[in-house]
């Protein structure tokens, strides 16, 4: 099966500092791909390259097997790539529906089509089996951390995105809410979306992911099936870039 999103040999430098070295990364529909790595390994840079926020210096960007050019977040959005950043970017003073449609309001002539938006939002939340919000006309200010994360994810999938990238979605959440969000992540993949999960938490990674991609100092140390590796191996890959046969030799991809 061809990956829906594939990066080949990506290089990215900021001035004299090369942040990404010859990185390969692929994401498949219906799977959760965990992107792990220590601080400064290049996870955020890689995601921002995917999202069109940073231009790539060299390498191939393939979507659905075809080479594409992504120069701006708008290009990424047009392909069906949605990124949910850690700070979620929700407006506290607006309600759930208003936030989900922010910047993409449905209109009839000049007037906002509130009824259609409410229906679409309700349908999306239902399809994600979200049962944690009392009313979709609640202000986001009144939601818990997990509910906010849910709204941000629902906002991302509302527009039939194909690839959803979640940046540390559980970092600020308690145990129960983390479980809620992970369940939602799994459900997205089961519905056929490709999900990229950036996380520091190995429990989360092993709980939901199908593949694990490990970045080490700007290089892709290994991209493996979750079922083929152990917890300890992944930790070793993150900290030293190699583990047994896996990973980099002398800091260079095998």
């Amino acid at each position: 099966m061809t990956p829906v999103l594939e990066l080949r040999g990506i290089d990215k430098s900021f001035g004299p500092v090369q942040v990404l070295h010859d990185v390969d990364f692929s994401v498949h529909l219906g799977e959760v791909t965990a992107l792990v790595g220590d601080n400064g390994a290049g996870k955020s840079t890689l995601v921002k390259c995917v999202g069109g926020i940073y231009p790539i210096d060299s390498g191939d960007y393939l979507f659905d097997g075809k080479a594409v050019q992504v120069h701006s977040p708008r290009d990424a959005g047009a392909l069906g790539i949605e990124i949910v950043y850690q700070d979620l970017a929700l407006c506290d003073n607006l309600d759930i529906v208003q936030n989900m449609f922010l910047g993409r309001e449905q209109k009839r002539g000049l007037v906002l089509d509130e009824d259609t938006m409410e229906e679409m939002a309700a349908r999306t939340l239902e399809s994600l089996s979200v049962r944690t919000v009392k009313s979709i006309r609640q202000l986001v200010a009144s939601l818990s951390g997990g509910q906010r994360q849910t709204v941000a994810i629902a906002k991302a999938v509302l527009w039939n995105g194909k690839v959803v990238i979640l940046d540390e979605p559980t970092a600020a959440l308690g145990v129960a809410q983390t479980a809620q969000v992970l369940e939602l992540v799994r459900r997205l993949a089961d519905q056929g979306l490709a999900v990229v999960l950036i996380s520091h938490n190995m429990n989360d990674v092993f709980a939901v992911s199908d593949r694990i991609a490990t970045l080490y100092l700007g290089r892709m140390a290994a991209q493996v099936k979750t079922s083929d590796v152990t917890h300890a191996q992944v930790v070793e890959l993150i900290t030293s870039g190699r583990s047994g046969d896996l990973g980099l030799t002398n800091g260079v991809t095998v």
């Binding site: 977040p73 708008r74 950043y85 700070d87 979620l88 970017a89 929700l90 407006c91 506290d92 003073n93 607006l94 208003q98 922010l102 910047g103 993409r104 309001e105 209109k107 000049l110 007037v111 906002l112």
Partner: peptide, 24 residues
Amino acid sequence: RRTAFGRHLYAVGGNAEAARRAGI
């Protein structure tokens, strides 16, 4: 209350960064 312009005004007042990322 009823136009996208008004909605965006509230959004910018509530969270300007979120509004910017939403393409406003």
